[in-house]
Simulated assay, not measured.
Amino acid sequence: MIKIRPYFETDWEAVCQVHDRAQPGEFAGVSVPLGLTPLAQNPYLNKIFHPCRKFVACDGDQVVGFVAIYKNHITLLYVDPDYQNKGVGKRLLRLALNIIGSPAWTVVIAANHRARHFYAKAGFRENGKFESQVSGSTCQFIRLVRSQI
C-alpha cells in the first residue's frame, strides 16, 4: 500500500534515484547530446527543490515518487517507472493541488505527451511556450495552468 508523507532529509538519495530513473521517460523523443543531468547535479536545485514543500510516496520504506511545490508552482513531480500508471502520480498531484489551491501551474517538456495528458486530465491548460537549454540542447517547454474548476 502506497503512503504519502512529508519529505525528510534522509530521503534525498531515494528521491534522486526516483528522479534519475524517471527522467529518460520525460525526455523521450528529445535529443540531449550531453546526456541527462542527475537531480543531485541540477544547477537549479536552489529554485526547484530546496525551498519547496516536498512530499514522498512510499511503498513500505521505499520512496517511489515525490512532489515539490513552491507557492502555487509544482516544480517537480516524478514517479519511479516501476510504479507509474498505478495512481501514485495522481495522488501526489491531488495533494499538491489541495495545498496550492488555484491557480496552480507547472512546466513540462513539449514533447512529453504523457505528462501533458496527465496534467490535462487534472484540468491544466496550456498557457504559453518557451525554449530553454537542457544539457547542451535547446528544448521546447509548455507552461500549464490550472484555474479553479
Rank of each mutant, 00 (worst) to 15 (best):
V15D: 05
Q17W: 06
Q17R: 15
H19L: 09
R21M: 13
P24F: 06
F27N: 11
A28Q: 13
G29V: 10
V30F: 11
V30P: 01
S31T: 12
V32Y: 03
P33M: 03
L34W: 10
L36I: 10
A40F: 02
Q41I: 03
N42A: 15
N46E: 12
N46H: 07
I48C: 14
I48M: 12
P51Q: 03
C52K: 09
R53Y: 03
K54T: 07
F55E: 08
V56N: 03
V56D: 01
V56T: 13
A57K: 01
G60C: 05
D61F: 03
Q62M: 07
Q62F: 01
Q62W: 00
V63S: 01
V64E: 05
G65V: 04
F66S: 01
F66K: 02
V67P: 02
A68R: 05
I69C: 11
I69H: 10
Y70P: 00
K71W: 08
H73I: 09
I74V: 15
T75R: 11
L76D: 00
L77W: 10
L77Q: 09
D80C: 07
D82N: 12
Y83K: 03
Y83P: 01
Q84P: 05
K86E: 13
G87E: 04
K90A: 14
A96Y: 05
S102K: 12
S102N: 13
P103D: 09
V107H: 14
V107F: 09
V107P: 03
V107Q: 14
V108C: 09
I109V: 15
A110S: 13
A111Q: 12
H113R: 14
R114W: 06
A115T: 14
R116K: 13
H117R: 15
H117A: 12
H117P: 04
Y119R: 04
A120Q: 14
K121C: 11
N127R: 13
G128D: 02
F130T: 15
F130C: 08
E131W: 00
E131F: 00
S132W: 08
S132R: 15
Q133M: 14
V134G: 06
G136I: 10
S137K: 00
T138P: 08
C139L: 12
C139D: 02
F141E: 11
I142H: 04
I142R: 11
